[in-house]
């Protein structure tokens, strides 16, 4: 096996490692940005990591009346997100996973984690678990058309749903990204990402008030290592989705060749891009309020419209 052959698998491993290790840091960064903007000192960006370590040390707890679904959901959440991290061309398109990095598959794998958590929420048999699951699935169901339509819009210029192909197409032909279709699709995808990751204005990750909880209500019964996994999974999802957004909107720097240096550069740029995006999101969240649950469809309808416009625009601008 030559050096070039080893770079690919190494890049995949590096991506996964970066996402796993960086996700809590991203969360910490965002909280820190928020705290500073709100005039607080903030716990520092490593706080999520400290929380996770603390939780991992606690006794694993199985609430009475829950079943295997409850226990496996956190594992599945982290595992599916890790697979997504491996699949996506975050740092390099020239990985062995690149040929399989199908955009639809990525979306589906992320949805798999959501479904697993929702089932876990129902498995507890508590009112909160059920409520969280119900709301989460409602939002997820409504987000789906937006995401897929945005995917559709982004795939048209590349003629493929392969992420690596889309990203390398974006690198070689930057005009695509600035086209109306590209912008509209990215905007639609951004809204969808907010909804998928449970950020404001769709859900408030910091709340524990019954009436406003969505994601938190679902995982209310988790404790100890299980909770750590759930938290880690949520952070990873955010990182991966922001990474996806970054890769699609600003693919510059992602390695297209199997060279170790390019991959390292790509990795650094990935961290920077995601950190910037996260900071921007955190800054924006300071000025947003959470929407009522039944106002969320309006937001999602708006993003759906953007995605639809993106598709038609991409048709009318490229289809001659």
């Amino acid at each position: 096996m030559n050096a070039a052959g080893a770079v690919g698998p190494a890049a995949v491993a590096a991506q996964v490692a970066a996402v796993v290790a960086g996700a809590p840091l991203l969360a910490g960064l965002m909280r820190q940005v928020r705290a500073r903007l709100e005039g607080r000192a903030g716990p520092g960006i490593a706080q999520p990591w400290r929380d996770l370590r603390k939780l991992m040390r606690k006794e694993p707890i199985t609430p009475v009346g829950t079943g295997p679904a409850f226990r496996t959901a956190p594992l599945l959440l982290v595992a599916s997100t890790a697979v997504v991290a491996a699949l996506m061309p975050l740092a390099s398109t020239a990985t062995p996973a690149g040929v399989r990095s199908d955009l639809i598959l990525v979306v589906a794998l992320l949805a798999l984690g959501t479904v697993a958590l929702a089932l876990a929420g129902l498995d507890t048999g508590t009112a909160f678990g059920g409520m969280g699951a119900s709301r989460e699935m409602t939002v997820a169901a409504l987000v789906e058309p937006t995401i897929l339509l945005a995917v559709f819009a982004l795939s048209i210029p590349a003629g493929s749903t392969n992420l690596a192909a889309i990203v390398s197409g974006g690198i070689h032909d930057s005009a695509r990204l600035a086209s109306p279709a590209g912008l509209l699709a990215t905007a639609a995808l951004a809204v969808a990402v907010l909804a998928e990751t449970g950020r404001l204005p769709v859900d408030n990750p910091a709340t524990h008030l019954e009436l406003t909880m969505v994601h938190e209500a679902m995982v209310l019964e988790y404790a100890g290592p299980d909770l750590a996994l759930v938290e880690l999974g949520a952070h990873m999802r955010l990182t991966v989705l922001l990474g996806l957004l970054a890769s699609l909107a600003a693919p510059w720097g992602i390695a297209t060749t199997a060279s170790a240096a390019a991959v390292a550069l790509g990795l650094v740029l990935f961290a920077v891009k995601v950190a910037l995006l996260g900071a921007a999101l955190a800054a924006a969240e300071v000025f947003w309020a959470k929407l009522r649950l039944f106002r969320i469809p309006e937001l999602l309808a708006g993003s759906f419209l953007l995605a639809l416009l993106a598709v038609t625009a991409s048709y009318f601008l490229t289809g001659e």
Binding site: M56, R57, K58, E59, P60, G65, V78, S80, A82, E210
Partner: peptide
């Protein structure tokens, strides 16, 4: 594979392996 890895890593890093039972909390 990812599931197995996550599961193994969790077990490796966890201090206490035995799962305890608890009443449902329900907020």
């Amino acid at each position: 594979a990812a599931l197995a890895a996550v599961s193994a890593l969790t077990r490796l890093t966890a201090r206490r392996r035995r799962r305890g039972n608890a009443r449902l909390w329900d907020c």
